[in-house]
Computed example of a mutant assay.
Amino acid sequence: MEPNVELNADYSEPGASAVPWADVLAVLTASEMFWLSTVRRTGRPHVTPLPAIWHEDVLHFCTGDQEQKSANLLANPACVLTTGTNRLHVGLDVIVEGTAVRVTDRDRLVRLAGLWKSKLDWDFEVGDDVFHDADGRTAWVFGVAPDKVLSFGKNPYTQTRYLFS
């Protein structure tokens, strides 16, 4: 998946270039923690940190079926996942905008459970259409195929947009 890449010169240092998509993929692949932003039924925002896995051009995360973010996503699946650094002058921050879709295919869930184990050392048992943790709690798995990705480089300062058609 190769996006259309656009540098926003208004928010980038003079002479800066767009951050290559390969650099963004490296951040998405290496990052363990993301911040998921959803919207409550009242319209108020809800943000929570969680681990996520980039696999086959989709960012995957899981959440308990009784958690606030699950309720939010059932009512409005539009969401944003953010990762990067808390540093001002170094690093690359990445924002993924898209629609969360439940993953229920057993083969895909098995592959994802293996990735959670290998990357994060989290053990999940795969149920019919869910993950189960060691305590037997149910977790829904969601995938977000990006509609748009933004990256914010810090040396030099850049703002780059990646659009998927």
Results as ranks from 00 to 15, higher is better:
Gly84Asp: 08
Asp123Asn: 13
Leu120Trp: 02
Thr85His: 09
Pro49Arg: 06
Val80Trp: 05
Cys62Glu: 10
Leu120Glu: 01
Ala113Gly: 05
Leu92Gln: 10
Lys117Ser: 13
Gly84Glu: 07
Ala78Lys: 15
Gln66Thr: 12
Glu67Tyr: 09
Pro49Met: 05
Leu115Asn: 05
Gly91Glu: 07
Glu56Leu: 05
Ile53Trp: 00
Leu115His: 08
Ile53His: 00
Asp123His: 14
Thr63Asn: 03
Ala75Glu: 11
Phe61Lys: 03
Leu109Val: 03
Arg102Trp: 08
Arg106Ile: 09
Gly98Ile: 00
Pro45Glu: 06
Val103Thr: 12
Leu112Arg: 01
Ala113Ser: 11
Asn72Gln: 04
Leu81Phe: 03
Asp107Tyr: 04
Val80Phe: 08
Asp121Leu: 11
Gly64Asn: 08
Pro51Arg: 09
Ala75Ser: 11
His46Tyr: 14
Arg106Ser: 11
Val47Ser: 15
Leu92Phe: 09
Gln68Trp: 06
Trp116Ser: 04
Val80Glu: 14
Val80Asp: 09
Arg111Cys: 07
His55Tyr: 12
Arg44Glu: 15
Asn86Gly: 15
Cys79Ile: 04
Arg102Pro: 14
Trp116Leu: 03
Trp122Val: 12
Arg44Thr: 14
Leu112Gly: 01
His89Ser: 13
Pro49Lys: 01
His55Arg: 07
Val80Asn: 12
Ser118Leu: 06
Thr82Ser: 14
Ala71Ser: 10
Ala78Cys: 11
Asn86Tyr: 13
Pro77Tyr: 04
His89Thr: 15
Arg106Gln: 12
Asp105Cys: 06
Glu67Met: 11
Gln68Asn: 07
Pro49Leu: 06
Val110Pro: 02
Ala100Lys: 06
Val101Cys: 10
Leu88Arg: 13
Ala52Thr: 03
Lys117Leu: 14
Ala71Gly: 12
Trp116Val: 03
Ala75Val: 04
His60Pro: 02
Ala75Tyr: 07
Thr82Met: 12
Glu67Lys: 14
Leu112Tyr: 02
Gln68Ala: 13
Lys69Met: 07
Ile53Phe: 01
Asp57His: 09
Leu88Gln: 14
